[in-house]
Each structure stands twice: as structure tokens, then as C-alpha cells.
Design a binder for these strands. Structure first.
Length: 328
DNA sequence: AAATTATACAACCGCGCTGCT
DNA sequence: AAGCAGCGCGGTTGTATAATT
């Protein structure tokens, strides 16, 4: 952290006597907060000027996004959030903004700091105290779910099969999963303290019952499927019978039906997916095909994880409410 | 009690991308 | 096509605070 520098002598550019740097004072916070609440977000350099702040637009943006935004969740990360971060990091790497997009109320900066200061160290300690071939399942600092995830990853690595994650496909799959889970949200949350449970909207305002870990690995690791009006989240445990082993690449994906509730026509071709990559900016772009190299371009050898939707329905329907957890 | 070290995290910096002229 | 401005991202720095010596 940096001390608030009222003198401006901390600055080194030509605006040294104009623009402040360092920590924000409560007065500056008030100015920015009031301006944003009254005027909304515009051009950040205009925000800085119009709010009467001696800051660059970039600094205002950062302060708003990381600290002042009203929808930010305060306080420590829950164990479920921690597990989700570990899982998403295993898939996405240091793409903090993408990880943050799947954790409502958390910022990329916050997650990055948390990872660098806490999780990285913990995982390092965990791996150094255990054999690579036998995950340390006795580490009491980790929940059993985290141990499952870590053990699963190590096992997959040993087989040369890193988790397969294709966002463009998962956005299609997510549509189907959304349609399954959305009507079930009320019953899933029965008995849990989760008022006003609903799904999320992504950056493009598309409704998503499922957020966080939306991928072909969702079934393996579980994930967050909804959010209460108080900000608490509903977490679904791993769906044991879902796997990525049933490979199909020649089904047809009928976009006419993917937004309806009729799941019988939920099919797609790889060409459809490739054709629509440009439309999948939020959940859409193919992010990685770890373990499969660049086979995507070759097409023929690509493997596509596909859920058996009827089985998934059974899985989800058969959970008792005690299987679900509220994340605070 | 003082000094030192470790930790957490707010904030900055540089880079790349996008849209506009 | 080139130049510019604005924005967002990831890496890094700096410092308040806590823990340890």
C-alpha cells in the first residue's frame, strides 16, 4: 500500500503537480462514489475530471472496480470459493479476470492476491509434503473436495490427460444445464437459507443458472449454480456419473432449440461451434485444450466431452438438499 | 519493548487490444 | 495504414499490520 500523497511529489510525469498517486483518502472515495452513483460509468478520464478528483482515469477505474463498487463481496473467501478458484486456476491459469467473472462479487485483483499470498503457498506445502503419486489425503488444512480435485488432477496428469476444457462447447452445454437446473433451483435450495435464489447473468446479459466451473468438468468438480438475493451462493457437489469419456463429434446442434426448454434437440456439430466462436466472448472462446495440443485445428482428432443429459437430470434430481451447500 | 520478518492487499506500471479519426 | 486515446489485464511494487525473535 502507498501513503496518500497530498503533495503530489510522488508523481514523476508532466502532471506531477496535478495528479495524485498512492492511497485514496476517504474524501476522494466519497467524491468518486457519489459521482458514480449519480452519473454512472462513462469515460474514465471524464469521471476523474467531473468528479473533481486529482487522479488519472485509470486510477479512478481501479479504485471503483476493486474497492468502491457496491456489489463487491467483502470479507474472507469461503472454502467453496477457494475450491472454485483452485479448480478454475487449474483450467484457466493466471487469467484472473476470467476467474473473477465466475465468482460474483470478487475482483481479479482480490483473487490474484489471494492466490499469490495464500493458495499458492498452501498447494506448494501440500505437494511438498506428499508424493506425486499419492496425494496427501491426510492434510487437514484442505477440505475433502479440494483433495479430490487435486488427486484427480494428479491422476489425469499421470495419464497424460489434463482436464479438457473448451469454453465454446461449454457455453452450449451450459445452456442445456441451465435449462435443467433453473427449474430445479427452488427445490435444490429447500431447507437452505437462500432467499430469492436465482441464476446469474453473464457479461452479455445472458441468463445463466450455472456459473463458475461451467465446463465439461462441471460434473467432476461441481460448481455454483445460483445466487440468493443476499449474495449467498448455492453450490452443487460433483456429479459422479458424469464423465468426458463418451466422445461424439457428429451430432447436430440446432440453434433453434437451444434456448427453448425442449432438450431433446440439444445437439451440435464441431463446425457449428467453430462457426460461432466469435459469438462466445464471455464463456465462448476456446481457452485451452491442454493435453491435446493443437488438435482443434486438425479437427478430426478432437474429442468432445458430452454429457448424457438424461443421466445428468437423474443425478441432479436425485440429490437431497443436504448435498448442497450455501456459500457465503 | 524494540527490532526484525512475514503477510495481506491496495495501487501502480507496462503492454496489448479496440475503436476512432 | 498510421496514430492516438481509452480501457482492461496481468505482473509487480510498496507499505500497513501482524507475528516472531
Amino acid at each position: 500500500m502507498r501513503k496518500p500523497d497530498a503533495s503530489g511529489k510522488n508523481s514523476s510525469n508532466s502532471n506531477a503537480n496535478k495528479l495524485r498517486k498512492g492511497l485514496w483518502s476517504p474524501e476522494e472515495d466519497d467524491k468518486l462514489m457519489n459521482y458514480m452513483l449519480n452519473n454512472g460509468q462513462g469515460c474514465w478520464s471524464d469521471v476523474a475530471r467531473n468528479a473533481g478528483l486529482q487522479r488519472c482515469g485509470k486510477s479512478c477505474r481501479l479504485r471503483w472496480i476493486n474497492y468502491l463498487r457496491p456489489d463487491l463481496k467483502r470479507g474472507a473467501f469461503s472454502p467453496q470459493e477457494e475450491e472454485l478458484i483452485i479448480h478454475l486456476h487449474s483450467i484457466l491459469g493466471n487469467r484472473w479476470s476470467q476467474i473473477a467473472a465466475r465468482l460474483p462479487g470478487r475482483t481479479d485483483n482480490e483473487i490474484k492476491n489471494f492466490w499469490n499470498s495464500t493458495i499458492k503457498k498452501r498447494l506448494k506445502n501440500s505437494s511438498s509434503s506428499s508424493s506425486r503419486h499419492s496425494p496427501n489425503t491426510s492434510d487437514s488444512s484442505l477440505s475433502s473436495d479440494v483433495k479430490d480435485v487435486m488427486g484427480g488432477l494428479i491422476s489425469l496428469q499421470e495419464q497424460g490427460l489434463m482436464p479438457l476444457y473448451m469454453d465454446s462447447l461449454s457455453s452450449v452445454q451450459a445452456l442445456a444445464l441451465n435449462q435443467i437446473i433453473d427449474p430445479l433451483l427452488p427445490s435444490l435450495s429447500q431447507g437452505l437459507d437462500l432467499p430469492g435464489l436465482s441464476g446469474y447473468c453473464d457479461a452479455n446479459s445472458n441468463y445463466c443458472a450455472v456459473q463458475g466451473g461451467v465446463s465439461s468438468e462441471f460434473g467432476r468438480f461441481g460448481g455454483v449454480v445460483g445466487c440468493g438475493s443476499n449474495g449467498d451462493q448455492l453450490y452443487v457437489p460433483p456429479l459422479e456419473s458424469i464423465s468426458i469419456e463418451n466422445v461424439k463429434t457428429e451430432n447436430t446442434y440446432d440453434s433453434e432449440h437451444n434456448s427453448s426448454n425442449d432438450l431433446s434437440n440439444f445437439n451440435y456439430t464441431t463446425d457449428d461451434v467453430v462457426d460461432n466462436i466469435g459469438n462466445f466472448n464471455d464463456y465462448g472462446r476456446i481457452e485451452s485444450m491442454a493435453g491435446l495440443g493443437n488438435l482443434w485445428n486438425g479437427g478430426e482428432e478432437m474429442k468432445v466431452g458430452e454429457w448424457d443429459l438424461e443421466e445428468l437430470m437423474k443425478d441432479v434430481s436425485s440429490f437431497s438438499s443436504s448435498d448442497f451447500q450455501v456459500i457465503r
